[in-house]
Write a protein that binds this DNA or RNA. Sequence first.
DNA 1: TAGTATTTTGAGCGTTTGCTCAATTTGCTG
DNA 2: CAGCAAATTGAGCAAACGCTCAAAATACTA
Lengths: 202, 202
Amino acid sequence: MQARRRRVIEAALDEFADKGFEGATWRGIAGRAGVSQGLIKFYFEDKEGLWQAALLFAHEAMTADLPPPPFTQNADPGLALTAEWIRAYVRHAARHPQYFKMVMREAAAPNPRIHWAADAVRKAGHADFQRGLQLLQGRGIFSDLNPVLLQYAFLGAAHQPFLASEEIRAIYGVDATRDDMVAAHADAVVALFLGGWTGDSE
Amino acid sequence: MQARRRRVIEAALDEFADKGFEGATWRGIAGRAGVSQGLIKFYFEDKEGLWQAALLFAHEAMTADLPPPPFTQNADPGLALTAEWIRAYVRHAARHPQYFKMVMREAAAPNPRIHWAADAVRKAGHADFQRGLQLLQGRGIFSDLNPVLLQYAFLGAAHQPFLASEEIRAIYGVDATRDDMVAAHADAVVALFLGGWTGDSE
DNA sequence: TAGTATTTTGAGCGTTTGCTCAATTTGCTG
DNA sequence: CAGCAAATTGAGCAAACGCTCAAAATACTA
């Protein structure tokens, strides 16, 4: 049954995002999905394979949810279109933080997962992003900054409130995933990365 | 012996930062520190207690390493002083990423550690930061943005390249912790968060 | 140097882990 | 309904886990 397999993947996604690869357990995932451990092994080779399947699933969900990046056309994307894409990206990060949580947990120390993820999905996404950044920087926007560092600054700024939502709740008593907070954060990211240029030429 | 206890804490800091609370093991920490598992238990109550000790150690190291935040005086800090503090913060994040890695691994999902950390160290630091932000925003700098979200955007932007250094190495073949990269990222963060205002009034 | 207190070890206990596998249930086809 | 393949279970295994503890080594005092 296909629906069952999907339930397992979604449960794994939540478990890996919450607890990391080493902290996640077959029993925990089976419990979340409401199936037996044996069934997971029937669908997936091993823990590593399940992790990869979950990451691919989340990546495809993100690709499907986001508008086509204004970067991929080779023409200058324009600030308005770029701002719209950034807002959509922040909204997706807020609603589906599992993908970035999974990646970030593995990106902190050397391990086979991060190299697999780099080859399987991350390199292509980064190449798109860098192409778009090049167009914007060619226009003079933060043109003196290292594009790789700029990209990671963007990723960090966009994702952090949703990665650390439990801390925000603990310190400020606020839910960062509330609709108005998400919208406000999308505004903040646009202002930070495009704010200095919005009045210039369009 | 005090030096031995310190070696254990530093080993624990590395292990918790690399693998998270659940992924870290007594045997791994003991191996890194070059002592037996039994000795760690002699010094620290349990795994939770060792985690807390490691976080406190890293927090104190950060406090000692950073210049006094321009925020704490109630006078307007001035952009130059603020820029200098931001650069120092980024440099510390690059050289000692363990503290933020430890916090972020726990901040993703509800667990006792993040609530302990919030009360023990994070709330106070955030209050300082918010006080400083208030002064800057009173000056008109990003004054229309939610200060909590702005703080997390700053934290994410400042830390991300060093949290994800393994991914950057895997995708771009670059070492984000190299001196020149760290300096470039400090410049980038200053430009992003203060860049629009540097020419204004001082 | 003897005697006491502190530090350090490593074997081992009960539990949980990732994973196996024989057995059972379910769905499908003729 | 019979028969077969696919789906699903749960008991159980070796290894690794957090943690205990009696014994040994070291440091300190008189």
